[in-house]
Amino acid sequence: MPTYSLIAGIDEAGRGPLAGPVVAAAVVFRPGHSVTGLGDSKTLSEARRHALLPLIREAAHIGVGIAEPEEIDRINILQATMIAMCRALWSLPLRPDRALIDGNRVPDRLDCDGEAIIGGDASIAEISAASIVAKTLRDALMQRADHRWPGYGFAAHKGYGTAAHMAAIARNGPCPIHRMSFAPIAQRALGLTPR
C-alpha cells in the first residue's frame, strides 16, 4: 500500500445554479497544521464559513479553479466542474501525491492519484476546507454580480432557481452570467414558458 505525504482535498460550489460560475478549490494542509470545526460548507452558517476561511488560509496551501457560464454552456456542467477541479489542483503552489475529491467521480486530467469520496466534504478535513473555500469565493463572486446586474437578486439566492430569481428572469430576461443551456433558461429563450 503506498503512503502519501501530501494530500489535497478538492470540492466545488455552484453546480446547480442557473447563473454564475462553478468554483472549485483544492486544499493541502501544511505539515503539522489543522483547523478545528470544519464541515460541509452547506451545513455551516455564512458567519462560520467566514470565520474559518482565514484559519484555512493560515494552515493550508490553496488552489482555485473556475469555469465561467459560457464554458458551462459549451462543454456541459459536469465537464466544466471536472475542469474547474483540475484547475484548482494545478493552481496549488506544490504538487500533492494524492487528491481526495468530494463526490463519485475523479477528473480525468488530474496529474496525481485521485479518489472520489461520497460525502467527503463532511468527513475529510481537506475536502471540508476546500468546500468552505469554494463556497465562500463563489458567494463573493455572486455578491459582485449583484452590483453589476442589480435586477436579479444574485446576492440573496446566489443564482439558484428560487421563485424570486425566476420572476426576475421573466421580468428582465437572462443576463450574461445566466447558463443558457440550463433548462429553465433555454426553455424561456425558446418561448416554451410564459414570460
Rank of each mutant, 00 (worst) to 15 (best):
K135E: 00
L52S: 09
N172P: 04
H33P: 06
R15D: 00
P93V: 11
T81F: 01
R109K: 11
V35H: 10
A155C: 10
M166P: 01
I83Q: 05
A167I: 01
D113T: 10
P174F: 10
N104D: 09
M180T: 15
Y160F: 15
R179G: 12
E115M: 10
A24G: 00
G63S: 06
I10E: 01
K135T: 01
P31M: 13
D146L: 04
D146A: 07
G114C: 05
E12Q: 11
G119R: 02
A80S: 07
R138F: 03
R195V: 01
D97K: 14
F182D: 04
T136N: 07
S91E: 15
Q79Y: 05
S123C: 08
A186M: 12
S41F: 03
P93S: 14
G9Q: 12
E70A: 08
P176S: 03
I117W: 03
G63Y: 06
S131K: 06
R109A: 15
T43I: 13
D121L: 00
I10Q: 00
M82D: 08
M85N: 03
S5N: 15
L92V: 13
E70L: 06
K42R: 09
R74P: 07
E58F: 13
G161F: 04
P194T: 11
A24C: 06
Y160G: 04
L44I: 01
N104I: 09
P107I: 02
G153Y: 13
E12W: 12
I62A: 04
R87Q: 14
G114H: 05
A47G: 09
G9V: 05
A24L: 08
G153H: 14
A26D: 10
V35W: 14
A99T: 09
P174I: 01
S128I: 08
I10P: 00
P2V: 13
I7C: 10
G120Y: 00
A26T: 02
L94E: 15
A125W: 09
H61M: 04
V23K: 10
H157Q: 13
A24I: 01
A47L: 14
S5W: 07
H61L: 08
M82R: 00
V64Y: 02
F29D: 05
S91N: 15
V23W: 02
G151S: 04
I101L: 00
A125H: 12
C86E: 15
V22I: 13
R148Y: 04
R74D: 13
A13M: 00
A168T: 09
E12P: 07
A8P: 02
I56F: 13
E70R: 05
L89R: 11
T136P: 06
A122C: 10
K42E: 04
R57P: 03
F29C: 12
R195K: 15
D113P: 07
C86H: 06
P96C: 13
R144F: 00
K135H: 06
E115Q: 13
C175N: 14
A25C: 13
E58N: 14
G173H: 12
R138I: 07
A67R: 12
F182M: 03
R148T: 15
V28S: 09
S41P: 04
L44K: 05
I77L: 10
A8M: 02
D97N: 13
A60L: 05
S41K: 06
A140H: 10
P194C: 08
